[in-house]
């Protein structure tokens, strides 16, 4: 709540706002080709710093304590830790070869990394910077998500075309769900009612019931004037209330807005070229989407469902992560 008062004679007139004033957050964008991470101030919508990182940075996340930004630098076979206070690379994690996507457990202690070369999900103790285990999965593990209760880890394998459900306690696979070709990304709804898995080559998003561990519906995309093959869903973000999902459609150059209840597309937002990954600001007012081939980031106003800004970043922007400050 904010309050602004004016004294008019003896009468105080107060305007009471229902929402917080716009707060500044920090977005970190990995630039696959430039070998840099662009730091964006979400109040100014401007790049405030460009951090030099290892080769081919892709997957990117902020640690739960906010102290580090983790970025997978695939061609250096490691995950680098950027100190958020100093905004420079401070340490590395032993990810195994060519890391791309990863996810943290709820406490921010264990990092689960898709290890594509060896068909493994690798577990890393973040504090100890040590590899603590592996789970064998399908061919080319890629997408990673952890259930809201922390009990289930989901990994998608791109050539096996499955979502593997892994018990985080026993570290064993408990179910395998077949989805469409080349599953890239997985995202749970906050209430654990649905898991969404995007299939880049299949051109669909499978909605999976995490309790039944079965596909219950599929989100289809159809854009007039575009060939079906050009629609390649990759990154996704779902609002906290589960009512709206945003799906980046790659070379279709659009982000689809999906009704969380009906699983129908309500709108296509035109963004830059080859839109890849997305992230909300912590207040969910904005969604950022990386546009690989136009070297920029589109800023979407979530309430208005409009692209309001484009921020130039490095070459081939890939992933985006959001920090409180």
């Amino acid at each position: 709540m904010w309050r602004a008062c004016l004294l008019l004679g003896s009468m105080a007139v107060c305007l009471v706002g229902a929402s917080e004033p716009s707060q500044a957050f920090t977005a970190y964008v990995s630039n696959e080709k430039s070998n840099t991470v662009s730091v964006i101030d979400t109040e100014k919508w401007a790049v405030t710093k460009t951090i030099k990182v290892g080769q081919r940075p892709r997957g990117i996340e902020v640690t739960k304590d906010g102290k580090y930004v983790l970025v997978a630098v695939g061609d250096d076979d490691t995950i680098q830790m950027i100190d958020t206070a100093k905004q420079e690379v401070a340490d590395t994690l032993p990810s195994g070869p060519d890391p791309e996507l990863f996810v943290q457990d709820a406490e921010g202690k264990i990092l689960y990394v898709a290890n594509e070369n060896d068909n493994l999900v690798t577990l890393i103790d973040i504090a100890r910077r040590a590899r603590v285990g592996d789970v064998p999965v399908g061919v080319e593990p890629e997408g990673m998500a952890i259930s809201p209760d922390g009990k289930t880890l989901v990994n998608t394998s791109e050539t096996t075309n499955m979502a593997h459900f892994i018990d985080t306690g026993t570290r064993e696979i408990i179910a395998n769900v077949l989805v469409d070709s080349r599953p890239r990304f997985a995202e749970f709804k906050r209430d654990n009612s649905e898991l969404w898995v995007s299939s880049e080559i299949g051109g669909t998003v499978s909605v999976i019931d995490p309790a039944k561990r079965a596909v219950t519906s599929k989100i289809e995309f159809s854009i007039p004037g575009l060939r079906r093959e050009a629609v390649q869903p990759v990154g996704m973000s779902i609002t906290k209330d589960g009512k709206t999902g945003f799906v980046a459609l790659g070379p279709a150059n659009r982000v689809a807005v999906v009704d969380g209840g009906t699983h129908k597309v309500t709108k296509y937002l035109l963004v830059g070229q080859r839109v890849w990954h997305t992230a909300f600001t912590p207040d969910e007012k904005y969604l950022l989407a990386t546009n690989g081939l136009s070297n920029d980031v589109s800023v979407i106003d979530v309430a208005a469902l409009k692209v309001i800004k484009t921020v130039q970043v490095g070459e081939l922007p890939w992933g985006v992560a959001m920090a409180q400050q």
């Binding site: 789970v135 064998p136 999965v137 026993t170 064993e172 696979i173 408990i174 179910a175």
Partner: peptide, 14 residues
């Protein structure tokens, strides 16, 4: 069922 699937996953390497 969970056990059987776990065992199968293991089979890749054994």
């Amino acid at each position: 069922k969970a056990f059987a699937l776990g065992a199968m996953a293991f089979c890749i390497f054994a």
